[in-house]
Design a protein around this nucleic acid. Structure first.
Length: 432
RNA sequence: GUCCCCAUCGUCUAGCCUGGUCUAGGACAAGAGCUUUUCAAGCUCUCGACACCGGUUCAAAUCCGGUUGGGGACACCA
C-alpha cells in the first residue's frame, strides 16, 4: 500500500511551491490507490501559528487535495524523545550541554558513502564526511526537523517521499538516521523547484506566492492545478488542458522533469480562460456572487439568479479571471453606466440623435423583444438608412455599456431589456 | 568556500532511457493579418531553441568527459 505525505510547516501561508508538492503527492497516491497523509510540522513553537494551519488546510481543500489522515508534530514530542533515548542507549548518539547547562541529544554521524536512488533523478551519491554530527533533540526538548521527519515517516509507514529539490541535501542525513534506528528506507523523489521570472526562487518580489493570493485574484482552482501540473510534467500528445481526474490516469512519477520551471503568469491567465470557458455557468455564478455583493452590484439576499447566470454566461468566455467580471459587466448592474471617455470620444462625438431615435422606435414597435427580432430590426434599419452596420453598432454599444468591448451587441440589448435600452439611448438624443 | 542538482525557442514542454523517422513538434507570450459586431474571444500566418568544447559512432538533441551558466543545501528553521 502506497502511503505518501505532504508536510507543511505552519510558519506561513501555503506557497505555490508547497501546493505543487502537495499536488504531486496527492496525484501519486491517487494513481496508486494509496493514502495521502497530511502532517503539520509545527515543532518550531515560536514561528508556528494556528492561523497558518487554518489557511493551509483551507487552501489544500480549495485545490481539491483531500487527505486521508492528519498529524501534528507538536503532539508527538514524546515519541521523538523515545527514539532519541534508544540511540543514546545504543551509543549512536550523545548528550551535549549548552552554556546554560541544558542538554541536547546529538547524533554521531558514521563515516560512509550514502547512495540514494531517486525516482526522478536516478542515483545520487554523498559522502558523510561532509556532515557534522546532527542535533536530534534541541536543548528546549523539541526534536529537530530531520529527526522528527524520519521518526514520523517511518512510524507512519510512508512508502514514498515526494518533496522539493531543496531537500536533496537532507536526504543523506535522514538515511543515516533510518539506518541507525533500524527503519526500512522509503523511496525518494525530488521535484524540481519553481522559479520566479527573474531567476531564483519564486518570491514576493516576483509576484504573488501564496495559493490563497491566486484564489483572491480570481483564478479557478482547477486552472491553477492544471497549470502547476504542467510545470515539470506533461500528459503527452501535445495536450495541455487536463484536469486532475484525468491526470491521475496518465501520471507516472518517472516522467516528471528534472529541470526547474519558471512560473509564468501569462500562461496561467490563458489556462484560467480555458477553464472559464467550459465552466458550468451556474457554478461560476456562485463564485461570482460574493464579488458582486461586495461591490453592492447586487443584494445577495434578493436578486434574480437565473438572470445573473445568463449574464455570467455572456461573459465567461472572454474573462481572464472571475475578478474581471464586475468591471466588465458593471453596466448590467449600475443604474448609471460608467462611460469610458475614450470610447465616448471615438464613437459618440457625432450627433446620432436621428439614428438612435429611429432605433428606439423600432424596438418599441417589436412584437417580441427577443434576440432574433432585435437583430432583424437593427439590420433592417441600417439597410434602409443605407449605412454599414458597424457604423451604428459601436456607438450603440458605447451608449449602452460605456465600453468599446463586450459581448455581442444584440445579446447586450436583449439582457438589458427595453426600458434600460430606451433610457440609455435617450441620453444621446437631442431634443429639437 | 564545500557538497549536490540541472541545462531544447523569451517561458512551459515533446523528443533523450531503446542514436538514424528531427531541415527538432506543440502551447503561452510577442508580431502580422482575417473575422462586413467590438475584443481582452475565435481563426490564420510569422518570429524563435538542442549552452559550449571535445570524445564514441557510418550517424549524436539523444551516449561519455570537461567547460560555462543556472539553481539548491551547508542552523539547537522547517
Amino acid at each position: 500500500m502506497v502511503r505518501v505525505r505532504f508536510a507543511p510547516s505552519p510558519t506561513g501561508f501555503l506557497h505555490i511551491g508547497g501546493g505543487r508538492t502537495a499536488l504531486f503527492n496527492w496525484l501519486y497516491a491517487q494513481s496508486k490507490q494509496g493514502k495521502f497523509i497530511l502532517r503539520i510540522e509545527d515543532t518550531d513553537k515560536l514561528r508556528s501559528k494556528q492561523e497558518y494551519v487554518d489557511e493551509i488546510l483551507f487552501s489544500l481543500k480549495w485545490l481539491g487535495f483531500n487527505w486521508d489522515e492528519v498529524y501534528y508534530q507538536s503532539q508527538r514530542f514524546e515519541l521523538y524523545r523515545e527514539y532519541a533515548d534508544k540511540l543514546l542507549q545504543q551509543g549512536k548518539a550523545y548528550i551535549e550541554k549548552n552554556p546554560e547547562g541544558k542538554e541536547a541529544v546529538i547524533f554521531k554521524v558514521p563515516q560512509q558513502k550514502i547512495k540514494v536512488n531517486d525516482l526522478i533523478r536516478g542515483s545520487i551519491e554523498f559522502d558523510s564526511s561532509i556532515l557534522k554530527d546532527q542535533v536530534l533533540i534541541k536543548s528546549d526538548g523539541t526534536a529537530t526537523y530531520n529527526f522528527a521527519c524520519v521518526v514520523d515517516d517511518a512510524t507512519m509507514n510512508i512508502t514514498h517521499i515526494i518533496r522539493g529539490d531543496d531537500h536533496i541535501s537532507n536526504t543523506p542525513k535522514q538515511i543515516l538516521l533510518y539506518d541507525a534506528l533500524g527503519f526500512k528506507l522509503p523511496e525518494f523523489a525530488h521535484l524540481p523547484l519553481i522559479m520566479g521570472m527573474e531567476g531564483g526562487r519564486l518570491s514576493k518580489r516576483t509576484g504573488a506566492t501564496a495559493i490563497s493570493d491566486y484564489r483572491k485574484m480570481g483564478y479557478l482552482a482547477g486552472a491553477l492545478v492544471n497549470y502547476l501540473l504542467l510545470l515539470s510534467w506533461s500528459p503527452g500528445d501535445n495536450r495541455e488542458v487536463i484536469d486532475a481526474k484525468e491526470a491521475i490516469k496518465l501520471f507516472d512519477i518517472k516522467n516528471v522533469n528534472k529541470t526547474s520551471a519558471t512560473f509564468d503568469l501569462k500562461k496561467l491567465d490563458w489556462m484560467n480562460n480555458q477553464y472559464l470557458k467550459k465552466e458550468d455557468p451556474l457554478k461560476l455564478t456562485e463564485e461570482i456572487i460574493p464579488l458582486l455583493a461586495e461591490k453592492k452590484y447586487i443584494d445577495k439576499d434578493n436578486f434574480d439568479k437565473d438572470y445573473l447566470v445568463s449574464i455570467v454566461h455572456l461573459f465567461q468566455g472572454r474573462l481572464t479571471t472571475i475578478n474581471d467580471f464586475p468591471d466588465w459587466a458593471d453596466f448590467f448592474f449600475l443604474p448609471e453606466i460608467k462611460m469610458d471617455p475614450l470610447a465616448k470620444e471615438k464613437h459618440l462625438a457625432k450627433d446620432l440623435s436621428k439614428e438612435f431615435a429611429l432605433f428606439t422606435e423600432k424596438l418599441e414597435g417589436l412584437e417580441k423583444f427577443d434576440l432574433v427580432s432585435i437583430e432583424e430590426a437593427f439590420r433592417g434599419m441600417v439597410k434602409d438608412l443605407g449605412i454599414e452596420a458597424k457604423v451604428l453598432i459601436h456607438p450603440v454599444r458605447v451608449a449602452l455599456t460605456g465600453k468599446t468591448i463586450g459581448p455581442g451587441l444584440f445579446e447586450v440589448i436583449y439582457y438589458l431589456g427595453p426600458e434600460r435600452v430606451k433610457e440609455r439611448l435617450g441620453l444621446w438624443i437631442k431634443k429639437e
